[in-house]
């Protein structure tokens, strides 16, 4: 790890100010950034921790019925919250206990690892990513592998999840890292079904529109059976071919529908 300055502001405003310099880098729970820095694959002059900001902590249900999660809330806290069982179950399966007690939802979404779990939940739920500057719809937020709509220095202060009628997340793990080789989040709302797939595509998390349409008409595993995920954009690596990932996306979608509650 190279040397760096460290700052831990207690307000969003102070954090935004601290991040205004070009070489500053926001730090959530550090579960990706710190190992990367230790390997000297990332370098920063100023690390700005967001975990000391009270207004970015905690979970509540808003007046509109949405689940509001502060950007610096840990996975463990989300896993322990009973308002959105599908999301809590997902959070409880990220990494291991150490990761869940340090890693934050804002950090995960800002990093947008193509194999991370949270992007699937945010996209399938139609969540709103609230930053210090604006509200971003999940459909606009995810822009490819490790790429998001965030501007430099912009902080995810809160994530707001509409709570579906039923939902489920199925994760088929990459055997070594236990990240999602393919993860599928299915969320059924009164006005439709959203299906988001993580881990599979070289463009990062994506919605499987064909499955959404079929499931809106018939919310059953059988409705998915006849479909196929195109393998063209799928990742192919030592853990699985593009065809295998496309196949798993369908299998996991069917299982998520069958298990949705």
């Amino acid at each position: 790890m190279y040397n760096f300055e460290f700052s831990k502001p207690s307000t969003i405003a102070d954090a935004v100010a601290a991040l205004s310099s070009d070489e500053a880098q926001a730090l959530g729970g550090g579960q990706t950034l710190l190992p990367t820095m230790k390997q000297r694959l990332a370098q920063t002059d100023m690390l700005v921790s967001l975990t000391g900001i009270g207004e970015m902590q905690g979970i509540c249900v808003g007046d509109d019925g949405e689940l509001c999660i502060g950007g610096a809330t840990t996975h463990a806290a989300v896993a322990a919250d009973g308002n959105y069982p599908g999301l809590a179950s997902l959070a409880g399966r990220i990494g291991d206990p150490a990761v869940r007690n340090r890693g934050t939802i804002g950090g995960s979404l800002a990093n947008n690892d193509p194999s991370a779990c949270y992007p699937a939940a945010a996209l399938a739920s139609g969540a709103t990513i609230k930053t210090n500057a604006r509200d971003i719809a999940a459909d606009d937020y995810f822009q490819g592998m490790f790429d998001t709509a965030l501007e430099d220095g912009e902080i995810i202060t809160e994530v707001r999840f509409p709570i579906p009628e039923v939902s489920n997340y199925q994760k088929f793990v990459q055997p070594a890292s236990r990240f999602a080789l393919v993860g599928v989040f299915v969320a059924k709302f009164a006005d439709g079904v959203r299906v988001a797939v993580t881990g599979a595509s070289s463009d990062g998390v994506f919605r499987w529109a064909e499955a959404e349409a079929a499931l809106a008409a018939d919310f059953s595993k059988a409705a998915v059976d006849a479909l196929a995920v195109p393998s063209g954009d799928m990742i192919s690596d030592l853990h699985g071919t593009a065809d295998y990932r496309a196949h798993l996306a369908k299998v996991m979608t069917g299982r998520a529908v069958a298990a949705a509650s």
Binding site: P175, A176, S177, F179, D237, L238, H239
Partner: peptide, 23 residues
């Protein structure tokens, strides 16, 4: 079932950490 050291055709080790080598 799990473990495999994997090199690409250029001799780069693909399974160079526990992210890719399954203990």
């Amino acid at each position: 079932l799990l473990e495999n050291v994997s090199y690409d055709e250029n001799g780069q080790l693909l399974s160079a950490s526990y992210m890719d080598y399954t203990m």
